[in-house]
Design a protein around this nucleic acid. Structure first.
Lengths: 346, 346
DNA sequence: GTGAAAGCGCTAACAA
DNA sequence: TTGTTAGCGCTTTCAC
């Protein structure tokens, strides 16, 4: 690393001076503080010309409303809290959809991510601390008990996770249906030795596992059922590949836990010189936009992120408005998207 | 979509009731409010047993400190604001590194992302509204004037973007060095027809473009210089592929704007049946972890995200502590990582 | 449109 | 350890 002084005037301009308040704006614009408040909330009661002048002055002196003060003073924050895992590309798709819908319905969004050093509980605490009016949790892995408790205190919407017997709203895809489509398709192509890499405790994993077993049984393929432990990361795909490559023969098809897992698997297979789909077919799950742009078109079960995000926000807002309405479970249909990583068995 | 009532007790438990405050905790624990405050700030002055009891009670009644009130009351928030683009996988790497370092130095982080419907200015406003003590901006594309103005009002650290003559701190990679390494390597492999897909207004793009031209000239390859317009998304890689595939012959090597661009390019080339690296060599830039796990090992210029994030936080904190110190520019050396998308020309 | 006043839930400083 | 006090910057209500 090299360090150099920037070529500027030798010091940052950042004056530690007092940050401008609403009073400063009011004074400079020659109006009352109440009026400024009203204008910034864009409530009716100020003329257009005054409005404009106030905004102008605010800009000049660099005034920005203080969210903390605003939050504290008003009962409402008009804010939705979203918990996500920043490393998950599918979550990025969801976030974009949430913002779009939140804009439409007049809510702000605050983000809180889990990272290896920051668990879900901390992420949620941050959101609650910011007084979000509802929490939208992307694929929470925490216990059902925790979720239930949380939902007693705040409106909570779980995305991509079913919470059986829940007192909270959830929005997710019909996991079983997606898996069934994938298995049906593979069987139709002629596959029998179809294995599944498990998603562990990841969202939807249990349903997918169960659906895989059921679908295999339905096709009279019970004896071929095999579930390799894993999770929803690229790493688990790579590990699964290691396991498989260490055995006498490869299965003819693999149903990965999700796209990330499939990507890891593909990478490892490629490195080992295994041809996809000629030697092994691989199916993902999610159809996150990044996966779509992967080197090779991944056959995967499409989840409609735009719709999922939109519904999550809509559900959250409706829950805020009617806290006592019955809990709802919104289920979207997935859709198998056949692309280039699948074909007939070798 | 299907909608069903959850199988729970028919209603969310979310009681719209008052949220517990510090006073509630104090009362229930039989101590003073001041003591509770003190305990939650983990300041000295309470016995361990009291501490424990207070936390216990807080948990029971579901109390969480109110960030807004806390922020408003105290002059400091101990919070760093990070602006990112959620769709950018490299930013995910940076965020993780920032959290790790922030934890170490006792700061919180609040995230604000740009999405297609939310520009950088809005993202920054949100951060400032939350009274972040410093702003860390990942690859800001906004004008230098805006950044300069902003840095007059708040400590600002720009990551992955040089701001010439700046009054703000920046942390980035020596772009030119990375590009030079890539071109040197390609030339050594025998390439001459090396083109560059431009990163447009993206962070580092101008430097990379310039360095590409310089490196080509240095090798006496000035007549081969060719820059295709683009940006830092997968899409631009796909578009560039379209352009190239529509011409008489392909270049033998492509230096993509970044990994995402390279990924898009690879996907499109693959679909068109073009073999990489046999027919075309492709080099990315960033070495984001996702790219590493791509189907094929991408040759790319590695930027040390962990170190970049760590330094960004460190710089931000130092700036908060000494607002008038001279602005600094921290430059990390990149490193070419040769993997599987490059080889000798056809 | 103004001006005043109360209060949001907390911090911070003080005296007890 | 306790209570008290005075704000933090804003919203909200009210009379003007």
């Amino acid at each position: 690393m090299t360090e150099q002084q920037a070529t500027g005037d030798g010091s940052t301009g950042a004056r530690p001076g007092r940050r401008p308040t609403m009073s400063d704006v009011a004074e400079k614009a020659g109006v009352s503080r109440a009026l400024v408040s009203l204008i910034f909330r864009n409530a009716p009661g100020a003329s257009d010309s005054t409005r404009e002048r106030v905004f102008q002055v605010a800009k000049e002196i660099g005034y920005r409303p203080d969210t903390a003060a605003r939050t504290l003073a008003s009962s409402r924050t008009k804010t939705l809290g979203v918990m996500l895992t920043i490393r998950n590309p599918f979550h990025a798709d969801l976030v974009e959809a949430c913002y779009a819908e939140a804009d439409r319905v007049g809510y702000d969004i605050v983000l809180s991510t889990t990272v290896p050093t920051r668990d879900e509980e901390r992420a949620v605490d941050a959101l609650v601390g910011h007084r979000c009016e509802a929490l939208i949790l992307f694929g929470p892995k925490t216990s059902a008990a925790y979720l239930t408790q949380l939902s007693r205190e705040h409106p909570v919407v779980a995305v991509s996770r079913r919470v059986p017997d829940a007192t909270l709203d959830s929005v997710h895809t019909a996991e079983a249906k997606g898996v069934r489509q994938a298995v049906d398709y593979l069987v139709k192509e002629g596959h029998r030795d179809i294995i599944h890499i498990d998603g562990g405790t990841g969202p939807g994993a249990a349903e997918r596992r169960k659906a895989y077993r059921a679908a295999m049984r339905k096709h009279g393929l019970a004896e071929w059922v095999r579930v390799i432990p894993g999770n929803h990361t690229e790493d688990s795909g790579m590990r699964a590949a290691e396991v498989l490559l260490g055995e006498d023969s490869l299965p003819t098809a693999v149903l990965a836990a999700n796209d990330r897992c499939a990507l890891g698997l593909l990478g490892a297979l490629h490195k080992a010189g295994v041809k996809v789909p000629q030697e092994v077919s691989v199916v993902g799950y999610d159809d996150s936009r990044v996966a779509m742009l992967s080197h090779i078109g991944l056959t995967t079960v499409h989840q409609n992120a735009d719709e999922l995000g939109r519904l999550a926000v809509r559900t959250a807002v409706e829950r805020i408005e009617s806290p006592n309405a019955p809990a709802r479970e919104l289920v979207l249909d997935p859709e198998l998207r056949v692309r280039d990583t699948t074909g007939p068995p070798r």
